[in-house]
Design a protein around this nucleic acid. Structure first.
Lengths: 411, 411
DNA sequence: CGTATTTGTCCGAGTGCCAAACAAATCCAC
DNA sequence: GTGGATTTGTTTGGCACTCGGACAAATACG
């Protein structure tokens, strides 16, 4: 009973269409087709009878729907159930993973990754390049992405490619992939969607650009540590801190698509000045640079530097241990603030916070519980990312493939 | 294309039913009936042809649906359109306001209000009593509510009453109306829903208890300053501070129903200790007592005391003016934090913040914009409550009447 | 007063789901 | 083995709902 895919209006991607919601019989069909597909997409192959049980649809209807999906090539029926119990065996319905794929890209601060991900979350291909470290112009980045993608068997123009999904660490307007600002790339007002559409010669509406944390949240929600949960918060800790929200099972992007900009939440009473002009911001206290600064590391950056600090912690280095504990404390204050406001079911910590997790866990939970009322914070699970650096890629794929799930008939 | 009404499961009122979502033709019917009813409920009487235009349904279908609603007594057709243009005039469809009503109650810190509100938001009756000022036990409160409600023509057992809605300033579990804690009432672990169901002799599922800020948000979203907007935040400033969230047009209650507990968000680096054990909490800096303390008022409390401060401000009193500006500053910090996280379309300030609004506007916006990235905070409208003290009552009525709108056939 | 326009009403058709009856395929007991 | 019990696919007829078109009714306007 999800809403159908809303068209990408500039304003709000969850709003209703102009002429709101008179429903005819065909929307039921679309809905049920999508439902079946989504079951298979999220939970893997299933027998026809299982599909009937989980959807509540009758045998005749399931048969009819499956036949249509088989005809359209999205699904195959092969093999039979692993013979459990008496009764006629039910044929297994399985997504043809390659029937619809998304080409996805993640623009990181020090690497660019690309992948081809099919229905069901199959990673068909995956590759990445490290960047030299210097900031790269949008045009050069697009060229780099094009090279990377062209190295893969399936590109955005491939007949089975549904679209191109891109994760960017910045403020993005989803409608057309316009990047307002991406501080850690040094970008400002970049029409990234248009540039990519041009570079790959695909229409603009096949290119979906999204904020890296928003897409990470989708990834963890659909394929990671928050599968099936209704309310999820994904905290993406990199150079900056961003949050991605899943509310009521749906990505929550805010009125203009800028929800989750949690990095400039005030957390530290005596905090350092932030690049935003304010001070005591969350990302000043919890990001990569905060950790390295607190641990006394200079000159080095990136995941390797973070790993080095963790090695020192494990070796018993007092300064590094204190640094990590401090990060954990401020992390907990922020997570507590967010928990108070949103009462999520799961908080997933991604980016550099994932490897940090076991070390920051205690101080984080202490700070969090100090700021949250018992019944609010008690049942909230705070867990590390399950997908690690792939969360954003999977999220981008989900966003691109969502159009297929929402309306399987058009393809 | 909204989801059908989810049953009030204990866990999450927005989650899907157990056997998720196979749709049959009858759900289309229910959907369309509800759609029509909701149009009339939110936008008042409309001609049949207007209904057809806004829903996109055909004339035949609208006719059929309207006939069914007339038969069930929810709607009447009377009069004709105010003759604009040529063509056959279309009969006006109008909700029978009294066909379904909600009996609603607000438990304030120093007053109890009750009302009878019908479809379309008609306030049929409304009365309230001031409390002596001392804290009242749950049992006494229930007696007081019973007396107040029995004075009205329509009670919860009236055949046209759909249910009883109650707004409480505390942490409430919606499923059964259990109040975990209501600091400003001095309550802890009160089975309010059960007590009220018993007192009025109605089944428990007819009693909907909700947090005061959550219901205020619903009220302002449906009938107040945030009509029709997708993402709204309602800040309820009383003794404590609470937030109510509307996300994607739907109330957002969180995984366990405790979303919006924003009062203990950290805002003031050098803040005072809070009753929660932490310090620098939002409600310590922005609530009623913060204002009165800052303005040098002692011994007096309540709305009257707040009004007295505002009178002093208008008279040019420097201390009062500074106090209000300080409140405005911290209010802005908190609103900025929330805006960064949720990117709402509208922030509605209710409770004592409504009368304060014109005086705190400037410092609030300054502090808010200092903490928000330009494109995020720029288009966010911050406005005072339009319904004032009635927001919660209207919100409670909407929650109760939602069952009728979701499934008009059962009544 | 006639025409254009808009809308209600009626009827047939289309779509999609379901229930029931039947057939097929498995397990299990004897 | 063989015959029930059980589960599931398949087919058919029926039902609920919506839509489009034809026609009638009610208005405005020249």
């Amino acid at each position: 009973m999800d809403s159908p895919a809303a068209p990408a209006t500039g304003k709000d991607e969850r709003s209703a269409p102009a002429t709101r919601g008179g429903a005819r019989a065909s929307v039921v069909r679309r809905h049920n087709l999508g439902l079946l597909l989504e079951c298979l997409h999220l939970e893997g192959p299933a027998s026809r009878s299982e599909l009937g049980a989980t959807t509540g649809l009758s045998r005749s209807t399931v048969a009819d729907l499956v036949h249509e999906l088989v005809r359209s090539g999205l699904v195959v029926e092969d093999g039979v159930s692993p013979s459990s119990g008496p009764g006629r065996p039910s044929p297994i319905v399985r997504l043809r993973g390659s029937a619809a794929v998304a080409v996805v890209v993640e623009l990181g601060v020090d690497a660019v990754s690309a992948a081809v991900i099919g229905l069901g979350g199959d990673v068909v291909d995956h590759r990445s390049v490290q960047l030299a470290g210097m900031r790269v112009s949008p045009e050069d980045t697009v060229r780099q992405v094009a090279d990377l993608v062209r190295g893969m068997d399936i590109g955005p123009t491939h007949p089975r490619a549904v679209g191109l999904g891109v994760a960017v660490p910045g403020l993005v307007r989803r409608a057309d992939g316009f990047v307002h600002v991406a501080p850690n790339l040094g970008w400002k007002d970049v029409a990234l969607g248009g540039l990519l559409a041009e570079a790959f010669d695909v229409p603009l509406d096949r290119v979906r650009v999204g904020n890296e944390a928003d897409l990470g949240a989708v990834g963890e929600h659909r394929r990671g540590a928050g599968r099936g949960c209704g309310h999820l918060v994904f905290i993406s800790g990199e150079v900056g801190i961003g949050a991605g929200l899943i509310i009521g099972g749906q990505p929550m992007l805010g009125a203009a698509g800028y929800a989750g900009e949690a990095g400039h939440m005030l957390v530290n009473p005596d905090g350092r000045p932030c690049t935003c002009g304010s001070s005591g911001c969350w990302e000043t206290e919890v990001g990569e640079s905060a950790l390295l600064r607190a641990a006394g590391v200079r000159d080095v950056r990136g995941l390797a530097a973070v790993d080095a600090v963790l090695t020192r912690v494990m070796a018993g280095d007092a300064a590094a241990t204190a640094a990590v504990a401090e990060i954990g404390h401020w992390l907990g204050v922020g997570v507590g603030n967010i928990t108070n406001l949103l009462n999520p079911e799961v908080v997933v910590l991604g980016g550099i916070l994932q490897p940090l997790f076991p070390f920051v866990r205690e101080p984080m939970l202490d700070a969090m519980h100090a700021r949250c009322l018992g019944p609010v914070s008690q049942p909230v699970r705070v867990v590390p990312s399950a997908l690690g650096t792939s969360a954003q890629l999977h999220g981008a794929a989900e966003v691109v493939l969502a159009s297929v799930l929402a309306d399987p008939t058009t393809r």
